[in-house]
């Protein structure tokens, strides 16, 4: 037994994600997946519901007869779920922004202070990814490289929010069911995108392209967490499920 303990080093539990953060993580996951699927449909409707006389049902051709026009409303449902997902993402973004500064457990800004040291540590982490040596020490805060990449991801989400609201407010004509302040707020905060991206069509394309960056982030994120779990043996993949990971101060080969 002594031999084994020596081999795996001192194992220490560290609490990384509270229940709230785990709920946020998985709602975020579901909402983003939902918005990618529905967003694809809105950009390029791949299914035709409602049969015309010359068409026959064919999944491969993307034709499904769901009866009369009024019964189908597939685009309405896609847009509805896209908007519901968007609202969830918006709320989560605001909560994330709050927690990044005022979280009791692990505020994100702690991973950036002191800035120079943390950037250097992020550089060491990148180096570690490619040399598998000199792993930066695990602390009870998020490692700076992940902190930087997650911040970039949230900035992409913010870009999606801004461009999305600009497309959403396009169908408003000056007022809304909750009052004129709501379209005004959206115009006030998002009209700059029209100038920067060249009109509503440009905004739409930016929204579409940013989705690809988000998909790339998701793949990268899953890969690195699996990679860390395999290579570090600290249970990183368990964080969003149980909230805990381990710190091993001494590793096998070093």
């Amino acid at each position: 037994m002594e031999n084994k303990e020596k081999k795996y080093g001192d194992i220490q539990l560290v609490h990384r994600m509270t229940v709230i953060k785990r709920i946020i993580h998985w709602s975020f996951f579901l909402a983003v997946i939902n918005n990618i699927v529905t967003g694809f449909y809105i950009a390029y409707p791949f299914l035709i519901f409602g049969k015309t006389p010359a068409q026959s049902d064919s999944i491969s051709k993307g034709i499904i007869n769901s009866g009369e026009t009024y019964q189908a409303f597939i685009m309405t449902w896609m847009r509805e779920f896209h908007f519901i997902g968007a609202v969830i993402i918006d709320v989560i973004f605001i909560v994330w922004l709050y927690l990044a500064f005022f979280s009791w457990k692990e505020p994100l800004y702690k991973s950036f202070i002191p800035f120079g040291d943390k950037i250097a540590e992020a550089g060491r982490m990148v180096k570690h990814y490619f040399t598998l040596k000199d792993k930066p020490e695990t602390t009870r805060y998020q490692d700076p490289l992940n902190a930087i990449i997650f911040t970039i991801f949230h900035l992409l989400i913010l870009l999606q929010m801004v461009t999305g609201f600009q497309m959403y407010v396009a169908s408003f004509t000056g007022t809304s069911a909750v009052g004129g302040w709501w379209p005004w707020l959206m115009h006030f905060t998002t009209d700059w995108t029209l100038v920067v991206f060249g009109g509503l069509t440009g905004v739409t394309l930016v929204h579409l392209f940013t989705m690809w960056l988000i998909i790339i982030f998701i793949v990268y994120h899953i890969y690195t967490e699996v990679w860390r779990s395999v290579m570090w043996k600290e249970g990183d993949i368990l964080i969003p499920f149980g909230g805990y990971k381990y710190i091993r101060n001494k590793t096998e080969s070093e």
């Binding site: 598998l132 989705m211 690809w212 793949v219």
Partner: peptide, 23 residues
Amino acid sequence: ADEFGMALFGAAGAGIAAHAIYT
């Protein structure tokens, strides 16, 4: 946007696969 996004996605996927094999 889709072509460029998919190209980036493919490049990222190839990079990840390469890194996994390398590791």
